[in-house]
Design a protein around this nucleic acid. Structure first.
Length: 580
RNA sequence: CGGAGCGUAGCGUAGCCCGGUUAUCGCGCCAGAUUUGGGAUCUGGAGGUCGCAAGUUCGAAUCUUGCCGCUCCGACCA
């Protein structure tokens, strides 16, 4: 590609709106431009990278037997009401104003509709169906350039199996394909156990790239044998245990004490583990007749721990939400800050506590009366029907239960998600098949996604320096940045043109900076910013001695080589181009 | 949705607090000249509904109110 005939609007200055590295560099290198919040135009260079990723994804999906579709972006409201997601998604789904339709944020419903009509026999299962195209999500807060947007390209795949064992196989195939994809894209990635989210389902694994710009928190061991999203991570914490002094509980005045920290200061103690923190949750249950009832839950953890809402959701279901501040006095008798397990106003509140508090005594907690707490609470003696679960959020520095392996907390970007969906959509939308015995069964489904732009941004997060992006491997937009220092000098122009043709014929993808009236420094800066793995520089002085310059982008190393050695040298570096 | 900040030429900005000539500067752009190995120099030039609307005022980029948009933090996030 001749630069003079291409379109790469590079920018020297850092754009005002960009904070995150990959965002800044994608704009500066002329890959993307923002149209409005969370909506980006893909410029030729960016589009080229995305397409490289798409091709890798396509190859790996095909290799596990995936078949490619292209489904509509528009779909009728009705379909989403049937699956129940019209409500669940709420504002996150784009709704058309002049037609009863939505812009699909994902395609379970539509793929399932096709499965319902056509996968009627166990003989037609299993199937892996996928597509690579645009998704629309009305994100409340798009951020960090292309990392979280309202319109993006996603590879979404769905597996259809006759039983759970079949799903396991389909799931493993995807896990394998995903590892190949991310490896080929040159990412340093890992996978974590994940929360399987609103649709129920069993196993779920997220593929992560560690990056400061990430929105997810993960806990991992240094040897990466364990990694987990913080939403589900389990770690060991010494139980609080019993002191058995058998002190009776007593209420005491704690004026204006709202937080655990304030309470600790007030009591002049530093160990907050016995200051039991109470959080109140409302679990909205839908009854058979469609009416709704509220279940109330009080969750206790150590004062220096946090309640993990994802873990609670697993225990109680999707209707769970934190109680609003206005509801608290009605449920407990006090405002946030004075709530505890003893003397709750509503006698039907279910009390649960984290395992670390199992049978603990001499606890301090709110008295369910503003500005009062209670000390010497013995959960075994004083709280009836208490149940213990793992409901705390694991923390940096803690160990994996039963080992001495330490967990480190890190920020990460989720680049892919594989997920055993189960029966939710097949049952809701009526996708059943007949088994060998002529019996009707719901199809067992899996769902698998990869965000294309997010993957590119993740790569850039991991591969950049103060001069720009550093591309290497299969997703580099081109292989070689050929720079003719001054095309106005005939000898260099003739030589560069010839080199461009020859290298092209050898299968190299070349970005050829043939621009006239651009000073050399400008071309070099552009080359480093765009960041192709190898730069070949043709200048008058060197060429007069039969030499050209060869530069490696990552290390900045330059070699002055005889022109006829270029082909051999390039061959030595073919791994930089993702050549086998 | 809550909190904070911002909106002046394609990009980055000064001016705003304390209202008053022709709205500042740099990059980029156009023309010419000189230049050509790390984002050139000089000369000349084009480019603006100061986000929008209403208000206060003799007079508003500047003050007030409302709206819109964007960014960041948080909430949310199959």
């Amino acid at each position: 590609m001749r630069f003079s005939n291409y379109f790469i609007p590079t920018i020297k200055e850092v754009p005002n709106d960009a904070i995150v590295k990959s965002h800044i560099l994608m704009i500066r290198a002329g890959m993307i431009r923002q149209l409005t919040a969370g909506v980006y135009s893909y410029l030729p260079l960016g589009f080229r990278v995305f397409n490289k990723i798409i091709n890798i994804v396509r190859e790996e999906m095909n290799s596990i037997g995936g078949v490619e579709f292209q489904l509509p972006g528009l779909s009728p409201n009705e379909l989403w009401m049937e699956s129940g997601r019209y409500e669940i998604y709420g504002d996150d789904i784009f709704k058309l104003k002049n037609r009863e339709m939505v812009l699909a944020p994902t395609h379970e419903e539509i793929f399932t509709t096709i499965a319902k009509a056509n996968l009627n026999s166990y003989k037609s299962l299993p199937q892996i169906w996928y597509q690579i195209h645009t998704k629309f999500r009305n994100e409340a807060r798009p951020r960090a350039g292309v990392l979280r947007t309202r319109e993006f390209t996603m590879k979404d795949a769905y597996s259809f199996d006759k039983d759970w064992e079949g799903l396991d196989v389909s799931y493993e195939k995807h896990a394998h394909a995903y590892r190949n994809i991310f490896f080929r894209c040159g990412l340093k990635f890992f996978s974590v156990k994940a929360h399987s989210g609103a649709m129920g389902g069993k196993d779920s694994e997220e593929f992560m790239v560690e990056a400061e710009a990430g929105e997810d928190s993960v806990l991992l061991t240094e040897d990466r044998t364990y990694a987990s999203n913080i939403e589900v991570a389990v770690s060991y914490r010494e139980p609080v245990g019993r002191k058995n002094s058998n002190l009776s509980f007593e209420k005491f005045s704690t004026p204006n004490i709202k937080s655990i920290d304030e309470l600790a200061d007030f009591l002049k103690i530093t160990d907050k583990s016995r200051l039991a923190k109470s959080r109140v949750f409302v679990n909205v249950k839908t009854n058979e007749d469609g009416t709704k009832t509220n279940e109330y839950i009080l969750a206790l953890v150590c004062g220096d721990d946090e309640v993990n809402e994802s873990k609670l959701t697993v225990l109680f279901g999707l209707g769970l939400r934190p109680a609003h501040n206005e509801e608290l006095p009605e449920i407990t008798g006090a405002d946030a800050g004075s709530i505890g397990p003893i003397g709750i106003k509503n006698p039907n509140v279910k009390i649960i506590a984290d395992q670390t508090l199992k049978e603990a005594d001499e606890l301090v907690s709110g008295a369910n009366e503003n500005d009062f707490h209670i000390r010497n609470i013995d959960l075994t003696r004083d709280v009836n029907n208490i149940e213990y679960y793992d409901i705390r959020t694991a923390k940096d520095g803690e160990t994996i239960p039963g080992t001495d392996k330490k967990l480190r907390e890190a920020k990460a970007i989720e680049i892919g998600h594989i997920f055993k969906l189960g029966l939710h959509f097949s049952q809701k939308l009526g996708a059943y098949f007949l088994d060998k015995d002529g019996k009707e069964n719901p199809i067992v489904m899996g769902s698998y996604g990869i965000g294309v732009q997010r993957l590119a941004a993740s790569y850039i997060e991991q591969n950049n320096d103060e001069n720009g992006i550093i591309w290497e491997g299969e997703i580099s937009p081109f292989h070689i940045h050929l720079i003719c220092v001054n095309p106005k000098i005939e000898s260099t122009k003739i030589f560069s043109d010839k080199l461009y043709d020859e290298l092209g014929k050898k299968g190299y993808e070349i970005l050829y900076d043939d621009r006239e009236d651009i000073r050399p420094g400008f071309k070099f800066k552009d080359a480093d910013l765009i960041g192709l793995p190898v730069q070949v520089i043709v200048g008058e002085k060197n060429l007069n001695e039969g030499k050209i310059e060869f530069k490696l982008r990552r290390t900045g190393e330059r070699f002055l080589i005889p022109e006829n050695e270029l082909i051999v040298l390039l061959n030595n570096y073919k791994y930089l181009f993702g050549f086998k």
